[in-house]
Design a protein around this nucleic acid. Structure first.
Length: 326
DNA sequence: TCTTATGATTTCAT
DNA sequence: ATGAAATCATAAGA
């Protein structure tokens, strides 16, 4: 019975049609994650359906053989009945013996099928374990997101889906990537400085434009107009003014209703670039200018600035930007 | 071949 | 359920 259950679960002995899918789902569930790893997946499915087919043809063959054999024996008995009396009990007994024999053969078939499935399964899992690096493009996209959301690198479910689609990987892979990235970034920020610069600079121009646009949009209602004169090329001035602008933008003084959360990520990027260029002279030192201000005292991101903190009118003294006042 | 990078898995805490 | 942290296993580079 265990074998039956197992075969059923694997979709080998189940209903004709959905077998493959059921098995695939079972495999995915067993490996703890949605794994639409297309190539290996279809491969697995193909192999499984192959096993399934063999199983069913064998089963049919046995059944047929069983029937043939019983009729054969019945005929024999009938013939013998001419020479000696044969009770129905005896016939029944014979049939029973035959059926038992065949069912034990069937059991063997089931067993070996199970074995085959198990082997296939373990191979499949092994294959899944075999790590393949993501494409350059995919890591690019992921890194861009990560560094432009450095203050809160926790993509929402939707964002993950979006990223997954863009990178043509699965959502759980995106989650894995962010999990790994966060932990590794936090562990050794110095090591990631260069990369951070790269991606920050990469999106800086866009960010600058976006921020400029946002500022422009809100200028009418804004009392203190940020000097957005240099909206052109974002030529990284010697930190000062621009940085102050950013700070006020990000902090409490400027909280344009529309700008808030949407701009947050852009601000991250800009702030980063500015910080970097500002403290470039002795960069990568133990205490470079760019400290992970989005990490809290225990090195966690979790009470880092959320969009709500941007919108909140007053922030406590230990605000996000407090560390930048060198 | 050794080292580092990186994706995946496991374990634990919340 | 989700994330942090540790760990595993392989890819890639030296």
């Amino acid at each position: 019975m265990r074998l039956d259950n197992m075969l059923l679960a694997e979709g080998v002995s189940g209903p004709e049609k959905g077998g493959g899918a059921a098995a695939a789902a079972a495999a995915a569930a067993a490996s703890g994650g949605s794994s639409d790893n297309s190539i290996e997946h279809s491969d697995y499915r193909a192999k499984l359906s192959q096993i399934r087919q063999i199983y069913h043809t064998e089963l049919e063959k046995y059944e047929q053989a069983c029937n043939e054999f019983t009729t054969h024996v019945m005929n024999l008995l009938r013939e013998q009945s001419r020479t000696r009396p044969i009770s129905p009990k005896e016939i029944e007994r014979m049939v029973g013996i035959i059926h038992r024999k065949f069912s034990s053969i069937q059991m063997q078939l089931k067993q070996s099928t199970c074995e085959a499935v198990m082997i296939l399964r373990s191979r499949f899992l092994d294959a899944r374990r075999k790590r393949r690096n993501f494409s350059k493009q995919a890591t690019e996209i992921l890194n861009e997101y990560f560094y432009s959301h450095l203050s809160n690198p926790y993509p929402s479910e939707e964002a993950k889906e979006e990223l997954a689609k863009k990178c043509s990987i699965t959502v759980s892979q995106v989650s894995n990537w962010f999990g790994n990235k966060r932990i590794r970034y936090k562990k050794n920020i110095g090591k990631f400085q260069e990369e951070a610069n790269l991606y920050a600079a990469k999106t800086a121009v866009n960010a600058a434009h976006a921020v400029a646009a946002a500022v422009q949009n809100n200028q009418t209602s804004s009392p203190t107009t940020p000097n957005s004169g240099s909206s052109g090329s974002f030529n990284l001035p010697n930190s000062g003014d621009m940085y102050m602008n950013m700070q006020s933008l990000n902090g409490d003084s400027y909280q344009g209703a529309q700008v808030g959360a949407n701009v947050q990520s852009q601000v991250d990027t800009l702030r980063h670039v500015i910080n970097q260029t500002g403290g470039y002279s002795d960069a990568l030192g133990g205490n470079s200018l760019y400290s992970p201000h989005h990490l809290n005292a225990n090195g966690g991101w979790h009470d880092a600035p959320t969009p709500s903190s941007v919108t909140s009118p007053t922030e406590g003294p230990g605000s996000v930007n407090s560390d930048t006042s060198n």
